[in-house]
Nucleic acid binder design. Sequence first.
DNA 1: ACCCTGATCAGCT
DNA 2: GCTGATCAGGGTA
Length: 201
Amino acid sequence: MKDIKPYAPLPEDFFQQPTLLLAEALLGCLLIKETEEGIASGYIVETEAYMGPEDRAAHSFGNRRTKRTEIMFNEPGFVYTYVMHTHCLVNVVSGPKEKPEAVLIRGIEPVDGLDLMKKRRKMDDLKNLTNGPGKLTKALNITIDDYGRRFTSPPLMIAKGIPPGKVTRGKRIGIDNSGDARNYPWRFWIAENPYVSRNRK
DNA sequence: ACCCTGATCAGCT
DNA sequence: GCTGATCAGGGTA
């Protein structure tokens, strides 16, 4: 792998905006992971906001503070990874210090390192490589070891990407047992993008 | 549409 | 120390 341009991560103050705005602002940004195997990256096409103490669907509901949720109480821009069943999911810590909010990255559009992603996912189907929160972490090799890093420096970064075009919002996915919170329109995605995990409101 | 996999945490026992 | 629930994915039917 050669001739891949050095990436310029977004500055720390990019992350210092209200969580719902950040969730939308992340659409079109480039998510990059550097490893010894090479670089893989993709445009973020789908996100979900988790609003902390008042959000029944958030791990930090009621200010729940454990070893796992601790990172969310930090200032924004930290990496929050956690394991769901057999898959690792990646979140951007949001909200000011002591406000445990986060944005889940649910889908990306592959950009660099296509061969690497296919190898890691053991498949060739481009459309299915990164169209889900557990799929993209496997394709980029984002793991629990990334927990607590910052998105502003290697090996895991978020950089300027492309303008997202039309953005749609709707209910979040997979949080059926969360009372009223399940109906909040806190999922954002790029309209008509084929790498969104599900195209339903 | 069901079945399996299985890290982490809360709430028990 | 155990059990059920959780922000999935892949396989099989």
